[in-house]
Structures are given as C-alpha cells and as structure tokens.
Write a protein that binds this DNA or RNA. Sequence first.
DNA 1: AAAGCTTATGATAGCGGTAACATTTTGTCA
DNA 2: TGACAAAATGTTACCGCTATCATAAGCTTT
Lengths: 341, 341
Amino acid sequence: MKKASRSGDNRGVLMNDVARRANVSPMTVSRALSNPDMVSEKTRAKILEAIEQTGYVPNRLAGSLASNRSNTIGIILPSLKNSLFAETIQAASDVLSKKGYLLLIADSGHLLEEEEKLVEAFLGQRVGGMILHNTLHSERTMAMISNAGIPVVETGDLLAEPMDMSVSYSNFEASKAMTAFLVKKGYKRIGFVAMLTENNNRARLRRDGYLAALDELGIKVDGSLMIEASSSLEAGRDALTRLLQIETKPDAVFFAGDIMAAGAAFECKHRNIKIPEDIAIASFDDLAILQHMTPSITSLQIPRVAIGHEAAEIIISRIEGRETSVVTKDLGFKITQRQST
Amino acid sequence: MKKASRSGDNRGVLMNDVARRANVSPMTVSRALSNPDMVSEKTRAKILEAIEQTGYVPNRLAGSLASNRSNTIGIILPSLKNSLFAETIQAASDVLSKKGYLLLIADSGHLLEEEEKLVEAFLGQRVGGMILHNTLHSERTMAMISNAGIPVVETGDLLAEPMDMSVSYSNFEASKAMTAFLVKKGYKRIGFVAMLTENNNRARLRRDGYLAALDELGIKVDGSLMIEASSSLEAGRDALTRLLQIETKPDAVFFAGDIMAAGAAFECKHRNIKIPEDIAIASFDDLAILQHMTPSITSLQIPRVAIGHEAAEIIISRIEGRETSVVTKDLGFKITQRQST
DNA sequence: AAAGCTTATGATAGCGGTAACATTTTGTCA
DNA sequence: TGACAAAATGTTACCGCTATCATAAGCTTT
C-alpha cells in the first residue's frame, strides 16, 4: 500500500506534536501525564485538550526504556487448559489493571525448560515483576531472576525459602488435613489419586501429605490404593475404575487433583455406585460443580482468588518501592464437608 | 539498598558489553540475534559465547522502539471468570509463543468503556496485533484501532463487516440450528434461556437465532418461554425453576449460555425431574462435564480451540507481511445429540 | 521593591537497541 | 592476478520518551 520508508512512515502522533499544539515543551507534556501536580492547572488543561484533539497515545515502550520502569507483569502457569487458573488470573488481572499494569501471560506446559525460555522472554520484555505458579525451576531460571532483581512471587505452594516471595497455601498440610478428616470420619481404606508427579512439586506434596496423615494416625499405607492420574474428568473416571478393581476395595477416595473427583462421581452414577454408602469421595479443589452435584462433594477450598489478588498486590507494593518485609504469605485452605463423605 | 543514581544503576549487561567481548560492533551482535545468516559462522559463534558468558538478555523494549516492530499481541476478553476462554487462550498462546510472540491479556468485564481503556493501553504498549472477543465497540475504540493500522481479529461472532478481520462461527446460525433440531425432534414448547443481552451481541444473536428458527418453522413465539440469565450454574438452576413455574410448561429448554445447562441438569436431578422424559435439555456450549453427566447433554460444539489457533495464525501472517486476503473466517459449529434430547 | 523561596517550564543528553548507508573483507572469474 | 560483485562488518543517526539540571516565573517577606 504505502512506501515503507523510515521518514515517510506515519508512526502517529508524537508527544512533540502535542507539545507544539499546546505551546509547551515535550517535557511538560510528559509531566502532565505522569506527574500532573507538577504542572499548572492551566497548562494541564491545554495539554489534555491537545491530546484529545490529536488522539495522542503515549508510547510506553519509549517511556519504559527511558525511565527504566515497566508497567507489565508476567505470569507463567503450568497450563492454561484447565480452567483452574482462571480465577487466579482474573483476580491478579483485576488488581493490576486497576493500578495501570498490564498482564503478560504464558504457560510452560509443565516443562522446566519452557519456563526458562518464558522467563527469559519476559525479562527481555523488561517486566516489572513476575508471578510463577510452578515452584520448581531450572538453575538458569533462578539465576536470571535473581540477576534481574525484580519482584517475583511463587504461588503454587507455600515455600519456606522462595526465590523471592511466596503467596500460597500448603499443599502438604491441606492434603494431610483432608486425609485426617476422612480417617476421623471413620473410613478405613482411603484411596489416593495423585496428579502426575513429574515436574510437579504440588502433586508430590499432596501425596506426601496423605502419607504423613496416615503415618501420624498409625495407619499402614497400602500402595495399591495410591495411583496417579492426569487432571481431567476422564482420568478421574478411569482412576475410580482402577481402584474398584483391586482386591480389597477402598471405602473412600481422596482425589488430590483438579476435577478428577467430578469425573469419579460421574462414573459412580454411571455404574450405579452409591456415594457415600458404597464409596466416599473427597476432592482437593473446590470447583463450582462439586457443590452442585448430587450428592455434593466434600472438598478443599483453595484460596484461588486470594492468591491472585495478594500476589499482584505484593508485587505492586515492591515495584512502587514499599518495602514489603513479607516473604511468605500463607493464605490457608478450608475443608467443606458435603454429602459425599 | 543501593543508590538510585542513573549512572550508578547496574542495568545489567548490554549489547555493547557483548560486542566488546566478542570483538565486534554492537550492530553485528544485533544481526547475529535477529538475522543470523547475515553474520559469518565464526563471528556468530564468538558472539553466542559472549552472550552465554555474560548472561546477556536483549532489551526488547529498545529493540521494538528502534525497529518499530513489536512481539506482543493483546487479547481482550469480556471475562476471565468463566473457564470458557481457557481453550481459546491456550490455543492462541501456543501458536504465538511458538513464533516468539508474547500475549498480553485483559478482560473488559463486558464494559465497552473498559474495553476502550484496554485497547488504548495495548496500543500504548505498541502491540503488534489484537484479538478482541467482543464484537461491540465504542466509537473511540474503533477509531483508535483503525488509526493504529495493526491487524485485529474479532472472535466473538462471525462478522460480515469486521473492523479488520473476523474468525468465529455464527451465533445466530448455531442457535437457529439447535432450535430447529429440537423442533424436528418433536418438541413443541421449547424454552429459551439467553445470556444477559446487555452489551453482549452474542447473547442477542443467539436469541434472534432461536426466534428465527421458530418463525421459519411456523411456530408461534411464546414470550413466557424466554428468559435471561447470567452464565453460572446457579443461574441455570434458577432459570429452570422459573420455567417450570409457568402455566404451560416447556417440554424442552435450550440454554444459550455457558454452563447454564449443567446447572439446570443438576436442578432436575435435585427435583427428581427426568431428562429427557419430563423435560429435554440442550446446551449452547459443549463443556466436558456435559458429556459426562448422566444423562449426557445435547450440545453445540463451538470451535474454541480453532478460534484461538486461527486468530493467532492470521495475525502473525499479517504482521509478517503476508497479505491475507481473508477477512472473515467461518469455523462452523456442530450439534452433538446426546441423551438429554 | 529587592531578596529569597517555591513552583513551573525548558534544554540537553541519554535509555538500548536497529535502519540505512558506508566501508572493508572475501570470493570469483576473466 | 587484477577487477569486481557479494558477503561481512562498521558508522552514524535516531526511535519516542524521561532524568537531570538549568532557567524563568510567581509569591512571600520585611
């Protein structure tokens, strides 16, 4: 269409154009935008009018470059497929956009090296801070982050020694608590369905919590009651099916991963197995469907929204210079007993 | 901690440092990174080594500013709360990150003025392209976009006259098809639960599709069979309850919004209403749970993944200069008949 | 009304890269 | 082997904005 010559390109309205129109220097325009109080009311009005008239949109790349400040925050999740992170993202996004920050999002597909690449890309983009859901990182990832000196929050699990900051709940404690809850309810053979543990520390911690609870309560662990499954309805159905095939069936199953419990419940209905009479079911997460199902399903409420919220808040605090002594913030969890146990 | 003086600040390793270490000019380093073939193999090796040693991470803000090219794409959704967009986001993200683009994400909360602000913020960030799910925009939004001259894809509905490009399916046709399907199945009084139509063109189009089908098939519309509800399980249950209270009850209900049908199915189970004997249920979306429920629920399959995929592809094509003649791409839909009808 | 402040605005020099053009090195062929 | 094109590298200016310091304008104060 148009010649692509450097000088000829219309790159749009510049701060300079606004300045000329308002009869001030570009610097004053800059101030009017980022430090309104440093500019007299009259001048500000002139400038705003000029902006309006010209349709000027400040170039934040240039701004960030010059000021060495950025208004983007990066978030890396292990996956976007599951809706699970939706609430967290939304919460973070709410807080951030309210304060004028933009959210860069990416998923690592549970791969450490992919996370590494993404961290590098985000740092290249000079994000002001990062939220990482995974708590397991490559050496280089950690080196790059510590080198960058930006605030970073890890949200996947409560960390005693985070790279920088940790905002979460304890997967171990949560899992342990639910297991103990089931034991106290009188269940004797409690099955455990873990998420895939490869590269997923949360999955391991949940499994460890289950084991710790049994151990503490003096119950012998039966390996055949423990299996792994991916996070999906199908996997949940599958897992249930498998557990029903072992010699001495479980009287309760604790699904320590996303939406698997719902899948299992569907499978029970399908097979006409009564919950909780024939088998009790408990879930780690607390998706809306779990409480709407018949019977409703006992589950652990994870502070998804709070995590997004707090992570964003804490990063902003740090970016804006408030010294946050907080390094680790435990947002807790809650067990909601429902009809399934 | 440290003095915050401009010169004193350690802003990290610069291209210059790498250049010196590799005994070349910065420009050669730049080329080695963005146009490897323009640099001799030997030099490239030296440079890569220097980069490795120094841990240099190119500043893309500076790069984008100088080259007037950006590696970020923005996506604005009406909401992140529902998981609904997860698949689309993931699909887009996959394509984009594979090609080295980063995804900026934000939600407008179904508000046109919020969308406007976000578009401005994205343009300020000089995104290379944008994906907008909403198809209704403020005047200024459209002005800004046309002015920016970047590729923009609207994905919420198939548009005859998109601002720039449209990648989607026809909400109207889909809704009409499902309604016709129910009619053909022999249902006489088909209830319709719409999403909230305010600021939501898709909601209106779906309603219009329902009306058009009835009209075409010579069925009189009964206003009492049409209600609006927000997108949630609760709202679905509620809607069903309301429809069961009218004098002449519907024998089928078409839920034209996200997850409402699942809510309705739960409510039926709760009230011991048989599906499809007492009432048939059809859903607009096709979430995994719908096919796992008992009975499984007839629904419309929306090309969520394809939309994200294609939208991203087409934007990249345009950014990279390939002239895409495509303006509107219809990805279609599919009705999956299940036990509920 | 001049001195002494505070407040508002301007001039200048980068931020860290890349485009465009200039120059050097290398390779090729008569 | 000299001439010349192609390939590799360097030089310079500038992308659009902001930090910093300098200057001008407004306000007290006595």
